[in-house]
Design a protein around this nucleic acid. Sequence first.
DNA 1: GACTTGACAATCC
DNA 2: AGGATTGCCAAGT
Length: 111
Amino acid sequence: MARSDFFEKVYAVVALIPEGKVTSYGAIAKAIGAAKSSRTVGYAMNACVKLDRDLPAHRVVNRNGVLTGKHHFPGQNTMQRLLEEEGLEIENDQIINFESHFWMPPLSKET
DNA sequence: GACTTGACAATCC
DNA sequence: AGGATTGCCAAGT
């Protein structure tokens, strides 16, 4: 396997998030078989920005539907703006109707 | 080489 | 019900 299976899986799942949908770190972590590693998922996202990945990290929020990582984007309001552009509703850094926009990633453990 | 920090979440008291 | 602690993995200092 790769040097960091974890990151690869995280990137894979995040890249699969459909437009106008959002998911949580815990959901991703669970999907890749590491429900307790939700923290590392967030870390992977931070790394993805530096790696200039194509991952819609703005579609990833914490389990409360709060844009916890919006500070890590190029602009402090970039994350929220992107979500609004996709038809989501954000208020006070929180996604309105979060569960309605929630997207459960496919549990692709491995192949 | 060891300790601390970090875009979270679940559990314990 | 609410606050504090632990678990997990990787990277930075």
